[in-house]
Design a protein around this nucleic acid. Structure first.
Length: 142
RNA sequence: AGAGUAGGAGGGUUUGUCGCUGGCGGCAACGUCAGAGGAAAGUCCGGGCAACAAAGGGCGCCGCGCUUCCUAACAGAAAGUCGUCCGUGAGGGUGAACUAUCGCAGAAGAGAAUGACCGCCCGCCUUGUGCGGGUAAGGGUGAGAAGGUGGGGUAAGAGCCCACCAGUCCCCUGGUGACAGUGGGAGCUGUGCGAGUCGCGGGUUGUAAGAUCGAAUAUACCGACGCAUGUAGGGCUGCCCGUCCGAUGUCGGGGGGUAGAUUGCUUGAGGCUUAUGGUGACAUAAGUCCUAGAUUAAUGACAAACGCCCGUCCGCGGGUACAGAACUCGGCUUAUACGCCUACUCUCUUU
RNA sequence: GGUGAGAUGGGUGAGUGGCUGAAACCACCAGUUUGCUAAACUGACGUACGGGUUACCGUACCGGGGGUUCGAAUCCCCCUCUCACCG
């Protein structure tokens, strides 16, 4: 397999009001501090994964802080996304993901990146079907 | 030297790796150029621009209100005037059209504007906690009490008269003007707020305005085919005849228009330099420059070095603000580590 | 991005510049009633600082800071926070 570049261009951003509403209403969700994650499988599109990254105004009042958080998260995502990409290319489908920063303080780049790796692993495991029963129970509880 | 006042300009630089948005070139891979602020913020004012509304004028409503001046405009800026408060001072805060007419001023107080409670003076008698009248100098109340002080005058008093002082009005002088003056004249003189009057300005809503294109699904309307003796059903009628319309299906056309896309969208009352005019805000002329344009929303992450500031055991350690464009300009307000420049003030020391 | 509304005791919430520290309702506390409770009735009831032996008295506080006024919860300016509307 050829060497991959750690890009995160506009094609890979999730946008459009209807798509986002659909994801927030019907997607599966879980929490890994400091993130809240929603994800959903849809029929194949031009890219294997489309992602939305978000920081809430309720918790961070200043636009500077929100911008910084989103940049940290984008950086962590683009460096660690390849495992998920390979999986979705094999499955011939597209994954929509939304990641919201849910912490109360701004964490360091190293910490955010470590946690982002864990998030992506969790998504891959959940979709692999190795332990779907456990995951479904969790979804029903919430 | 220390403390301070006013104004002004800044508020990092370089390298490497991995990325983001836009322009240009390229079939593509990719290359190359550009990429946050003085407040981008609050949304407190004023414009441009756009849509809608609208004959013209008056009244009403809202905003502004010392003077001159600047500006596209403003509740902004510049230069001044007068009052008041703060500061030893350099300075700073705050206020200001007019008052003919009308209203209000709680509690306290006799009285808040046709003023008499105590007091003072006069008169009368029934001689006393009496009645009538005069009086705003004194007492007390209040934020404010019929301009203030002194003298004359008087029964006691009072701008009743005079001198000085404060204000108002008229004249003179100076100033474009607000206004000023050891100027001349007139006894003209309560305070605050509001209504009112005068002058100037204001149509409403905001780029999520608005314009163009436009899937999928449903479908107004039109045509063809199919069904049908033009059917079910409906209109004209009390009923029948007659006559007119005609659902449901398939295909095609088609308008409005949703998701979405494009546009509005960055060259503008633009910046910089010089000259001229002006105390100044600013204006005029010449030259020169093009400098973000996203839309679930780019301008970043990591590492290293250099600056700058603070501390220092001279090895080094710590700090490097406030804050992120969203149609766009002119202001105001608020936040801001840190030093820098100019003018000025006060205190101390030395000469 | 734009437009608008609001903040008053523990909660809800009135309040024309003047006897409003502040109405009213709920909660809390005490009492009456009851075998015990509930309901009902009666009363009391903010916080801080200072003074006083107790009873109590004084001053300040209506989101925060300035201003206007003799006097501000109320009028004006600035800041903080909360909520709503516009595709």
């Amino acid at each position: 397999m050829m060497e991959r570049r750690n890009t995160f261009g506009k094609e890979e951003h999730l946008c459009g009001k209807t798509a986002i509403d659909e994801l927030y209403n019907t997607g599966d969700r879980f929490f890994i501090y400091p993130f809240r994650i929603l994800y959903k499988r849809v029929p194949k599109e031009s890219v294997p994964v489309r992602c939305l990254i978000n920081a809430p105004k309720r918790k961070f009042k200043h636009a500077v802080d929100r911008n910084r958080l989103k940049r940290l998260m984008r950086e962590a995502y683009r460096k660690n996304k390849h495992a998920l990409f390979e999986m979705m290319e094999k499955e011939e489908a597209t994954m929509q993901v939304a990641i919201t920063y849910n912490g109360d303080t701004i964490e360091s780049q190293a910490f955010v990146e470590k946690r982002m790796r864990k998030v992506l692993e969790q998504i891959i495991q959940g979709k692999d079907g190795t332990n779907p029963g456990q995951r479904r129970q969790g979804a029903e509880r919430s």
